[in-house]
Design a protein around this nucleic acid. Structure first.
Lengths: 234, 234
DNA sequence: TTTTAATGTGTATTTTTAACACATTATTGC
DNA sequence: GCAATAATGTGTTAAAAATACACATTAAAA
């Protein structure tokens, strides 16, 4: 049988078809703290990249969907199980991992850092400002850049940054997230105008507390408005 | 050693880490003909989906990058080696393939149908109008929809549809591709205005031939304008 | 030569985006 | 208590982009 006739509709897989290819999932977990966009990274301990930062990931299990694998990694690492996750891209260069052929599917995730407070007992796990990361183990810097780019596109039209904030937040905080992600300054009046028009916010009629200046009003994300959409996505 | 400590920086892979997971690449190859957007599909011959259309794909080889695999599939199937290819998404549901665990990374591709004229000797391989495809083998309909959606977003800002047309084309043909992809009607005057402003076209000072009406002017894609960008992407 | 069916062009309207300044309020420091 | 501070909160105008829309021109076909 000619090679070409196996295309696409290979009927059965023989043992030799299961190559020595491992599949992993890597998560770019974004958080927001002190006015900065941060990413959760871990010290790499394999000899080729000793001491460098790497993303959180693991091998995909034989009985596990890709999405489930990324949820599992996030759950295990942060304790959160209600987070935003989006698949971004799969990186499959032959020599990207020194241990062998490992193809990795990457997700980015948005979490509210204060919601779960890592057990930072081991300081191998760490929230690092995205802007300060210049290199990482493996091709992880490339993956980070790709995911950040995707996040920037995403927030232009989709209400996802709420996942980086606490339930209640001020407009200043919201704007601050946008500025951190997009790495630019925004006009306050235009920003507020746009958000009110979008109908993404619910005014809680509460005020900030413990701020060293006039407190701003607090809002929450108008989740009801997107219930249908969220269902469609899942 | 606790399970959690293997995350991300697994040092070495043992035999049991290479699960029975196979990795494939599937290509959604778009073409344009008779005013319609078409996709290259092949009759499926595995028993579960006998006779249904499926996408072109193959297993990724152990020594092959993902991008290379998709190029190989395209080259083998269409004879073309200078085509537009873009990775879209990886589909990894546990039971998506009846033969076993097969995770597939999908690409969409844009080719000019007339450039290569399939050896349609076997009519198992076929250009099918996208609009008329309601179901496919495996999860391929889902893959097709996802790729079409990505294509629609892409053409809004990026000059990629030229890949669907011959070297020389009229503005009418160009608009017709947009209308086919976006599945809508566009205003001719605004369309032309936008394209001239974009500076994507070079006027060839030639006219269409063999058309049963007043011939339109012919243009070609202003490739020079994007040489730098293309380099950056690769 | 008339009819046909397409190409080719410009302007007015609407919508969206961007630029911009000052009064208000709670806290802090004196 | 009062002044100074540092943030919140608000509207208008100008520029740019997107949209709607009609008629003359050209080559082929009848």
């Amino acid at each position: 049988m000619k090679q070409i006739s196996r295309f696409s509709h290979f009927g059965e897989l023989s043992d030799k078809d299961y190559f020595r290819i491992a599949l992993s999932v890597d998560c770019v977990i974004f958080g927001f703290e002190d006015g900065e966009l941060k990413v959760l990274v871990i010290k790499c301990n394999i000899k080729e990249y000793k001491g460098m930062w790497s993303l959180l990931g693991d091998l995909v299990r034989p009985d596990e969907d890709l999405d489930s694998a990324s949820y599992r990694i996030l759950k295990d690492r942060t304790g959160l199980d209600d987070v935003y996750l989006e698949q971004v891209q799969t990186f499959g260069k032959v020599n990207r991992h020194p241990a062998g052929r490992v193809i990795t599917t990457t997700y980015f995730s948005l979490v509210n850092i204060k919601d779960h407070q890592l057990k930072l007992s081991d300081n191998e796990l760490h929230w690092h400002p995205v802007k300060e990361i210049t290199e990482m183990a493996f091709d992880h810097k490339n993956i980070l850049d790709t995911c950040l780019e995707r996040l920037r596109e995403k927030i232009q039209d989709h209400p996802v940054v709420f996942n980086l904030l606490p339930k209640k937040f001020s407009l200043r905080e919201l704007q601050s997230v946008y500025e951190a992600v997009l790495n630019c300054e925004l006009d306050r009046r235009n920003f507020r105008k746009k958000f009110f028009m979008m109908d993404w916010l619910i005014d809680l009629n509460e005020l900030e507390e413990d701020v060293p200046h006039r407190p701003g009003k607090l809002y929450k994300f108008n989740a009801a408005k997107f219930a249908k959409k969220a269902k469609k996505v899942s």
